[in-house]
Amino acid sequence: PTDLALAYRSVRYSPANRTDIPELQLLIEAAKRGFFESASIDHSGLNLVLGNEAPAEAEKETRLWLERHGPFGEPMPYKLASPRYEVLAEGWVGNKKPQWLIPKPVVLPDKVKSWPANQPAPLCAEGDLEIALGAPDAAAGSRYMAVYAKNISARSCALQSYPQIDFLNEAGDAQPDIELQPEPDILLERVAIPSGEAVISTLDWNAMSTSQDPDETVALVIAAAKGMKPVQLAPQYDGQPTSLDILDGAQIAQSPWVQARDGWAIPGDAFKPQPPATPRP
């Protein structure tokens, strides 16, 4: 372990196996900047805490310094905190992210043929799209649901967006503090939808405790893109209305509109006539 003691602040570096000189140099650079209370590298990456006398521009300066810094062989995350340990900024040294965080075109199912990427089509307008919800699903504490949009116009139209969604409780009020976060590894691309075809956007969230907060989501208000008129839809399971454990403060990963996704139902199937629901006992 290597400790560099400085007046009124410290740099601590405790390598698991051997000293990594570039990592140690990064900590020394942090100390030389003069406004960090502490700087350390551990299994979570680089952790910086500002001192009480840090200048107002310290947060911006730190972001620029770390973004312009030479990347390491392996991506290194960083976290910048205030003197009260409130997180001010997070990112990756040298802007080098791990592969799973680099957006890529979505992988289509084996039996799905990709539509032409450069098809000349105008943006979808009001009345061009019909919106539908897939049935919610669950696995190991995670929840999943799909949103579909079908081109019901007579010609192709294009989307390059995320659905705009509000989640309503039984009183008809929007759930507060919902965070819809773009799924980080899927590239937002323009998708030209042929007439009669459909696209999908997927939602993924962690199960939430309804015993502590029984105010579940019973409807979604969805617009295919900003500025479009939304529609209100109720989720269903096995043909019966159901609620979702999306409560206030939920964090939901959302994909952009894509032609199809491996492991999800083919979008066009969501608009096929369904058999009558079997009444529940």
Results as ranks from 00 to 15, higher is better:
residue 261 R to F: 03
residue 172 G to R: 05
residue 103 P to R: 14
residue 93 V to P: 02
residue 23 E to R: 15
residue 71 P to F: 09
residue 188 L to Y: 02
residue 159 L to N: 10
residue 264 W to C: 00
residue 18 R to M: 13
residue 51 G to L: 01
residue 129 L to H: 10
residue 217 T to M: 09
residue 45 G to P: 15
residue 105 P to I: 01
residue 32 K to Y: 04
residue 85 Y to M: 15
residue 77 P to Y: 10
residue 281 P to R: 01
residue 238 D to T: 06
residue 281 P to I: 00
residue 89 A to Q: 15
residue 280 R to I: 04
residue 57 E to Q: 14
residue 33 R to E: 00
residue 59 E to L: 14
residue 169 N to M: 05
residue 237 Y to A: 03
residue 162 Y to V: 08
residue 83 P to Q: 02
residue 25 Q to W: 12
residue 158 A to R: 02
residue 144 Y to F: 12
residue 188 L to W: 06
residue 114 S to G: 10
residue 256 P to L: 14
residue 248 D to W: 13
residue 206 N to S: 08
residue 28 I to V: 15
residue 139 A to I: 03
residue 281 P to C: 05
residue 140 A to C: 07
residue 103 P to K: 15
residue 256 P to F: 11
residue 16 A to F: 07
residue 38 S to H: 01
residue 123 L to Y: 10
residue 109 P to Q: 02
residue 180 L to R: 10
residue 171 A to I: 09
residue 230 P to G: 08
residue 111 K to V: 07
residue 235 P to L: 00
residue 165 I to V: 15
residue 133 L to A: 05
residue 28 I to G: 01
residue 242 T to E: 06
residue 96 K to P: 09
residue 87 V to A: 12
residue 202 T to L: 12
residue 53 E to Y: 09
residue 10 S to Q: 08
residue 195 S to R: 12
residue 109 P to C: 04
residue 67 E to G: 14
residue 200 I to N: 03
residue 214 P to G: 10
residue 35 F to R: 00
residue 34 G to D: 02
residue 18 R to W: 11
residue 81 A to M: 12
residue 218 V to G: 03
residue 104 K to F: 09
residue 195 S to I: 10
residue 233 L to G: 12
residue 52 N to P: 07
residue 42 D to L: 05
residue 47 N to G: 11
residue 76 M to V: 14
residue 125 A to F: 02
residue 41 I to H: 05
residue 205 W to V: 02
residue 76 M to K: 15
residue 106 V to C: 06
residue 221 V to G: 07
residue 27 L to N: 12
residue 228 M to F: 11
residue 255 S to L: 01
residue 167 F to A: 10
residue 29 E to Q: 08
residue 156 S to F: 14
residue 94 G to P: 10
residue 182 P to W: 03
residue 212 Q to L: 11
residue 24 L to H: 12
residue 244 L to A: 09
residue 261 R to Y: 04
residue 271 F to H: 14
residue 34 G to C: 01
residue 47 N to F: 04
residue 101 L to D: 09
residue 70 G to Y: 07
residue 151 N to R: 08
